[in-house]
Computed example of a mutant assay.
Amino acid sequence: MTAKPEILKLTQVTNSRLFHIEAMDLRFSNGVERRYERLRTGGLGAVMIVAINEQDEVLLIREYAAGLEDYVLTLPKGLIDPGEDMMTAANRELQEEAGFAARQLSHVRQLTAAPNYMGHRLEVILARDLYPSKLEGDEPEPLEVIPWPMSRLPELFTQAAFSEGRAIAALCLVQQLQTRVEPPLVSRETASI
């Protein structure tokens, strides 16, 4: 296996409230030196929740996506706050964005997006045994919650408004888990919150 490149220098390029861009001067094992730019990732990561109700429907949300300048369908998601583990963050985000909490939460897998340019990690969490519970979130407007039958995922994947790659990947992973017969995921039963 090739050794990781040596980091020669890290330089802050610019900062905003959300983004920190830095230049990385690297030397590869063959002696080649290159400068890369990346979005520096801080914090504890994020969660995306695949919440499935008793009717075998996944809870989608409709929210405004500034990057696309339009409303999109996606899954509840958010940052892991200081002092939280991923399961606590997932249950909090589910309550803030969809108005439900879960008694059963299971870690599905970690996803990355554009790893050549950023180190953002997203934990996919499966939420089951849902019950109504609403927490105040940081959304600027109420989010519309849309229950979608798991049996109709192929139709969802054709909807122009449902285009977020991480949400598509999360649903495909959960769908695959539901169809195979293997030992269950590591799960944490949550107490009533």
Results as ranks from 00 to 15, higher is better:
H20F: 07
H20R: 14
H20N: 05
H20Y: 05
I21E: 04
I21K: 13
I21S: 06
E22I: 03
A23V: 11
A23E: 15
A23Y: 14
M24S: 06
M24Q: 11
L26I: 00
L26K: 00
L26A: 03
R27V: 01
S29H: 10
S29E: 11
N30R: 01
G31D: 02
V32L: 10
E33P: 03
E33C: 12
R34A: 11
R34T: 12
Y36G: 00
E37H: 09
E37M: 09
R38I: 02
L39T: 02
R40W: 08
T41C: 08
T41V: 05
G42W: 07
G43Q: 04
G43M: 02
L44Y: 13
G45K: 06
G45S: 07
A46E: 13
V47I: 13
V47W: 06
M48F: 13
V50D: 07
V50A: 08
V50S: 03
V50T: 09
A51V: 13
A51Q: 14
I52Q: 01
I52E: 02
N53S: 01
E54V: 08
E54D: 15
Q55F: 09
Q55N: 14
D56H: 13
D56F: 13
E57I: 06
V58M: 06
L59V: 14
L59M: 15
L59C: 14
L60V: 11
R62E: 02
R62H: 00
R62K: 10
Y64G: 01
A65Q: 13
A65V: 11
A65G: 07
A65K: 07
A65I: 07
A66M: 10
A66P: 14
A66D: 15
G67F: 11
G67H: 11
L68E: 04
L68N: 05
E69L: 08
E69S: 09
D70R: 14
D70C: 09
Y71P: 01
Y71T: 04
Y71E: 02
Y71Q: 00
V72Y: 07
L73M: 15
L75E: 04
L75P: 03
P76F: 03
K77G: 07
K77S: 12
K77R: 13
G78T: 00
G78A: 08
G78M: 04
L79V: 05
L79Y: 03
I80Q: 06
I80W: 03
D81W: 13
D81Q: 14
P82S: 03
P82M: 00
G83I: 08
G83K: 12
E84G: 03
M86N: 10
M86Y: 11
M87V: 12
M87L: 15
M87N: 10
T88C: 12
T88L: 15
T88A: 14
A89F: 07
N91K: 12
N91M: 08
N91R: 15
N91T: 06
R92L: 04
R92V: 10
E93A: 04
E93R: 15
L94N: 01
L94S: 06
L94K: 01
L94M: 07
L94T: 00
Q95M: 14
Q95P: 05
Q95S: 13
E96I: 03
E96M: 01
E97A: 11
E97S: 13
A98G: 09
A98V: 11
G99M: 12
G99Y: 07
G99H: 12
F100M: 13
A101Y: 10
A101N: 12
A101F: 14
A101C: 14
A102V: 05
Q104R: 12
Q104F: 07
